[in-house]
Nucleic acid binder design. Structure first.
Length: 559
RNA sequence: GCGCCCGUAGCUCAGUGGAUAGAGCGUCGGUUUCCGGAACCGAAAGUCGCAGGUUCGAAUCCUGCCGGGCGCGCCA
């Protein structure tokens, strides 16, 4: 195992000793829960678990709760009557923060908050500073995220790019949420494919064609010229140098893509010292009574743990299967003391999920502590000008050169990992508002420009006292609410392993900011109003920047 | 045959129990003495694959079908 960079756990972004104050939304939720408890009794309140929603339609209030509909059968009263009682109680609790409540539809209680609440919320967001929206994890965990793990026998292609973007963004989000994350790359530098690479390089070095089942790509010929004595040295050495060269090349590509791994784990290490780590895993499995011998091979009884059939670990020839390496590798990860292991795999590996989960359990692991996330495929469309040699994948380097890192990451991250991506290269190349990533970045740059125009004195004065008591326009209230939602979006994205939610949120936030920018003139507005709007702009800029950072996309001050 | 993923507007996709289902692209029509027009506004556009079920309430949960993608080695 090779550590790259400082041998340290990534520190949580937030100071765990200084819990961030409850967000304004949490406070509101607390008030609603207390209201429910007052009306229906504590026990019933706990069981009902009412929602605090953000209604789609402005007419349905800033927030809404379904508490009355949940309580109605318990209390034995019509939902709308219950809602009315809840409304009275909530009105008393919220005081000046509340504008009004309305009972609507089948029994929703719609909550309309006063300007004062929005202004206080803005102040709370600014006070939280860079930490706003983060640190929400219920319990900080040590999480290992293994991703990319491409075979070092060929260049990275667009599928790896998606895996890299996803794994890295997930790590950024988990870390911001409050976990300690380790980024890990598993290097398959052992076995027949590596030897095959050596054979292929050697053939090229000797001016011959690689064998039919060898590696045919142009990169093999390049390696043949780079590796000294490739024609004559033992094929194992050539293979080893070939792997090292490929790995270096991959790392260069990944770093350019803003993906940095903390750990590279080499499969070869599992087999050092007479397969010590593999044997160690076998002992664990035997100790748990999970293995048996049949037809001269060593089998793992995965079928007892949800797999279709049992799997071979050690072939009758005495060789270990690839699966055996995976099992030993995961045992090693277990012993490194993580609370949770996440593997990000390509869709072509989904057939291995059941056996890996079974093996993990057979090793004595808790089934839920290993997560196997499957990335669906990437389909490039509109790439007419994207040169590619026939018969070869479009490489990750090609993609980056074509559309740039920001657009590539955005387009690969904007979709849920379990749906295929149709990557629109023509759209990704555009530098206009039709391109979502450009649109979000443009909003950020526009704020930077606006703040520069106002001047740093005016901005810092505004931040000293963001709540000026000035009345708010509708667009300002909408912007405050959208900004407030950031913490919940981060939590959802982290807990559901769904970075695409951050992309969706960032685009929506940019749209809401743009509406504010259109409706509310900032610079030169009447004194107190200008200060309040500057403060709001700063909050918007910070959160757009943070959202983009979680995706690994830059937030330029000008463009 | 079995397993996993997907099926929502013309296209690409958000939306894992709430109200009249949303966004981007595309199409059509508008906007410039104004903080970034590299922009902005508006309109048309849907049988949420189909059929049952659970629920006060279903795109969402359950069952069965249909369609598409992928996978089912003592390969790695």
């Amino acid at each position: 195992m090779t550590r790259v960079g400082p041998d340290l756990r990534m520190p949580p972004l937030m100071d765990a000793a200084a819990p961030s104050p409850a967000s304004p939304v949490d406070a509101l939720r607390g008030a609603v829960n207390a209201t429910v408890a007052a009306v229906a009794g504590k026990e019933r309140a706990l069981r009902s678990c009412p929602t605090l929603e953000r209604p789609r339609k402005a007419g349905f209030g800033d927030f809404a709760t379904n508490a009355a509909m949940l309580l109605a059968p318990v209390v034995g009263a019509p939902p709308r009557d219950v809602a009315a009682r809840l409304g009275e109680e909530l009105t008393a609790r919220l005081g000046g923060a509340l504008d009004r409540v309305e009972v609507a539809g089948p029994g929703f209680l719609n909550i309309f908050l006063a300007d004062a609440w929005h202004r206080e919320a803005l102040g709370a967001m600014l006070a939280a500073g860079e930490a706003f929206g983060g640190g929400g994890a219920a319990g900080a965990q040590r999480i290992d995220v293994e991703f990319v793990s491409a075979n070092p026998t060929g260049p990275l292609h667009v599928g790896h790019a998606r895996n890299a973007a996803y794994g890295d963004a997930l790590c950024r989000i988990l870390a911001f949420h409050g976990h300690a994350v380790e980024r890990e790359f598993y290097v398959n530098d052992f076995g027949s494919q590596v030897r095959n690479l050596g054979v292929s390089i050697q053939a090229r070095a000797r001016g011959q064609e690689p064998p039919q089942d060898g590696y045919q790509g142009a990169y093999v010929a390049e390696l043949a010229t780079q590796i000294e004595g490739a024609a004559d040295r033992p094929v194992e050495e050539v293979a080893r140098d070939g792997v090292a060269a490929m790995l270096a090349r991959m790392q260069g590509t990944l770093e350019a893509f803003r993906v940095h791994f903390d750990v590279f784990f080499f499969e070869r290490e599992l087999h050092e010292g007479g397969d010590a780590l593999v044997r160690h895993a076998y002992e664990e499995l035997e100790g748990q009574g999970r293995t048996y011998r049949s037809e001269g091979a060593l089998w793992l009884r995965t079928s007892a743990l949800g797999d279709d059939k049992d799997r071979v670990l050690e072939r009758s020839s005495g060789d270990h299967t690839y699966f055996a390496s995976d099992v030993a590798y995961h045992q090693h990860k277990r012993e490194r003391g993580f609370d949770r292991l996440i593997d990000v795999w390509g869709a072509d590996h989904h057939g291995y999920v059941a056996r890996m989960k079974a093996a993990f359990e057979a090793l004595g692991g808790e089934r839920d502590r290993l997560e196997l996330l499957i990335m669906q495929f990437v389909h490039l469309v509109g790439g007419a000008s994207m040169s590619k040699r026939s018969g070869e994948f479009v490489t990750m380097d090609d993609l980056i050169a074509d559309v740039g890192v920001d657009a590539a990451r955005w387009f690969l991250l904007a979709r849920s990992h379990d749906t295929t991506v149709d990557f629109d290269l023509d759209l990704a190349r555009q530098e206009t508002a039709e391109n979502p990533v450009f649109y979000v970045q443009y909003a950020h740059a526009r704020i930077a420009s606006l703040l520069a125009k106002a001047g740093s004195d005016a901005v810092s004065t505004a931040l000293d006292a963001p709540d000026r008591g000035a009345a708010l326009e509708g667009a300002e209230r909408e912007l405050v609410k959208k900004l407030l939602a950031f913490g919940e979006e981060v939590a959802e994205a982290a807990e559901r392993r769904a970075p695409h939610r951050i992309a969706t949120y960032a685009l929506e936030l940019a749209q809401v900011f743009t509406a504010f920018y259109r409706d509310c003139h900032v610079v030169g507005a009447d004194g107190e109003v200008e200060a309040q709007r500057l403060a709001l702009s700063v909050a918007a800029q910070r959160i757009i920047a943070r959202a983009l950072d979680l995706l690994g996309v830059e937030a330029p001050a000008s463009m």
